[in-house]
Design a protein around this nucleic acid. Structure first.
Length: 124
DNA sequence: ATTCTCACA
DNA sequence: TGTGAGTA
């Protein structure tokens, strides 16, 4: 009951419908690198975790009056191991990967299994 | 029928 | 953010 949360199951339309947003919005979030849906031959596929993540983003944007660039900024200043206390082992794994280019929250869906770590830090 | 990208209101 | 055009 943990692996299926990261399973890409929803196509654009469905995901947008569930979230009550326009497909355009989701594409924008992706363009802004706030989410990274799976790609199956051009088609975006969202996992359940992607959905909750997006719910967080929308909450931040509307209730906390944060802008897209603002969120990106926060993420830049927020190391993942501060949001969740993962074992040093896992942390090293993260840093290896992140040292490359990726931001930790982008593959957090695979490495760190926290789904919505953003909310914690934002609310503080 | 669906999604994709792009450009514009 | 939302829409429409033109594809694949």
């Amino acid at each position: 009951m943990e692996f299926n949360d990261n399973q890409p199951v929803y196509p654009m339309g469905v995901a947008a419908q569930i979230l009550g947003v326009h497909p355009r919005t989701l594409r924008i979030y992706e363009a802004e690198e706030l989410i990274s849906p799976y790609r199956h031959g051009g088609k975006r596929m969202f996992s359940k975790n992607d959905l909750v993540r997006i719910e967080c983003l929308r909450k931040l944007i509307h209730e906390e009056n944060l802008s897209i660039p603002g969120i990106k900024k926060l993420l830049d200043y927020t190391p993942c191991w501060k949001l969740k206390d993962c074992p040093h082992e896992t942390r090293q794994k993260c840093c290896e990967l992140s040292g490359k280019k990726k931001k930790c929250w982008e593959f957090s869906q695979k490495t760190c299994e926290k789904s919505c770590k953003n909310c914690e830090v934002y609310l503080k």
